[in-house]
């Protein structure tokens, strides 16, 4: 008999407050390994905070966070990759230097960065400084950086922000491929279409609480828009 796998992310009764103002008011979320889940929410609803908790970049005020069944210690954090709409790249390093630097931080050989750079969309960018990249190119490099260490869990915080249609569909193709490889995806977005494109289950963050997981197709766009507008169900 095989032991059931621990969920990739498990938040139980998580409250997160900043200056005594709660942003999350008791969030429960369980993301099984290999699944794709999208957290939908309006701007300022706490999506980024939720992802930072899942990445163990911040601690809950109350409640517990577990990654792969363990408290989010440094070793577990290494199983997580994060892509945000902000670039984590150094503007005045080239793409190759950025990837070599991050590969080094993860204790990987420089050849791992070279492998990532060998892929067609990145190869022509290797020698360019990050600051001259377009938004779409930057996001491609960001994704390559987040995948360098082959993380089991990929956290995506509004990854489509600022991307044109071509870049967005390219990103979707890459994320679907990653999902096909068994990688767990947790996406924060305000756009249900992005969840549908990834065949992700969705949960809606309203008033600091998360709804139960639903298939993306089960969401009624008009009702969702009303929820976002009112900030509650």
């Amino acid at each position: 008999m095989t032991r059931p796998q621990a969920p990739a992310v498990e938040l139980a009764g998580v409250v997160k407050a900043f200056d005594h103002r709660p942003v999350l008011r008791g969030v429960d979320l369980r993301v099984e390994q290999g699944r794709a889940v999208a957290v939908l929410g309006a701007n300022g609803s706490g999506k980024t905070t939720l992802l930072r908790l899942a990445a163990a970049l911040t601690s809950p005020t109350r409640g517990t966070v577990a990654l792969f069944g363990r408290p989010p210690a440094r070793e577990v954090r290494r199983r997580v990759g994060l892509v945000t709409h902000e670039s984590l790249l150094y503007d005045n390093l080239t793409v190759a230097e950025n990837l070599r630097f991050f590969a080094g931080l993860y204790g990987l050989a420089p050849s791992r960065a070279a492998e990532a750079l060998a892929s067609p969309p990145l190869a022509p960018l290797a020698g360019r400084r990050a600051r001259v990249l377009s938004r779409g190119q930057r996001q491609q490099v960001n994704l390559a950086r987040a995948l360098l260490h082959d993380p089991d869990l990929l956290l995506l915080d509004e990854p489509y922000t600022g991307l044109d249609v071509t870049a967005a569909s390219r990103l979707t193709a890459v994320l679907r491929a990653e999902r096909g490889r068994g990688r767990t995806l947790l996406l924060a977005t305000h756009d249900p279409e992005e969840a549908r494109a990834l065949d992700a289950e969705v949960a809606v963050l309203l008033g600091g609480r998360l709804t139960e997981l639903l298939p993306a197709d089960a969401l009624d766009p008009a009702r969702l828009a009303a929820w976002f507008r009112d900030g509650r169900r």
Binding site: A55, L57, R74, R77, T84, E86, S87, Y106, H149
Partner: peptide, 13 residues
Amino acid sequence: RDHLTGLRLAAAD
């Protein structure tokens, strides 16, 4: 400032 997240994610002590 904008890169501390990257450093911490890479589990840099």
